[in-house]
Amino acid sequence: MMELMQVRGLKKSFTKGPHTIPVLKGIDLDVHEGEYLSIIGQSGSGKSTLLHVMGLLTHPNEGEVSYRGTRIDNSSDLERDRLRNRDISMIFQFYHLLPELDIVENVLMPMMIAEGYWKFKFHQREHRERAKMLLERVGLAHRLKHRPNELSGGEMQRTAIARALINQPKILLADEPTGNLDRATEAGIIELLHGLNETEKLTIVLVTHNPVIAAGADRTVTLTDGILE
């Protein structure tokens, strides 16, 4: 099985005034293609930071991140932007939807970013169809015209998942996707992610502090104090 993403010797620390706080202290991790990996760890163990580094939202202090055998942590901004847009999607604990757009527009946003004005305009109808299809897939067919603030937390996270899927990424990084949801909703989201992994062979890396959620994954690693066990 090919390694979709490889993390080697990753170190990351934050500077707060005169103090340097190490968060990740040398992490090696392989993510296989099509796998459902969960990273479990206590609050403050550095799991979100690990995910941000993998998602190219921040740079590591040391170590490398490779995607399909190519090192990506030090590639150009343009390339990193492109990867974030097309290959590596993320969903967040706080959903991070754009409040001024309705959910279809929110779902379409990565596509708008990917395509120029005319290209997008030209294919607008198919794109909208695809966005609606995805929203149907995540169970939001009845909410198309709503704005994020009119939705429940679970619905917002479903919208975020649909948005993450629109550009057909290879890997989905989920940062505590159920951290703010009640048990029932949580189960629905996890089931959705599981289904995506099963039917669409989407590689998922899920970060959580909840062992119950982590238990559903193909493979589980534990992050303690910046070190994987």
Partner: peptide, 15 residues
């Protein structure tokens, strides 16, 4: 926050 989201979704600084 919106700017952060857009960047996470792949928007460039110039964008």
């Amino acid at each position: 926050r919106d700017i952060g989201i857009l960047k996470a979704l792949g928007a460039s600084s110039w964008g």
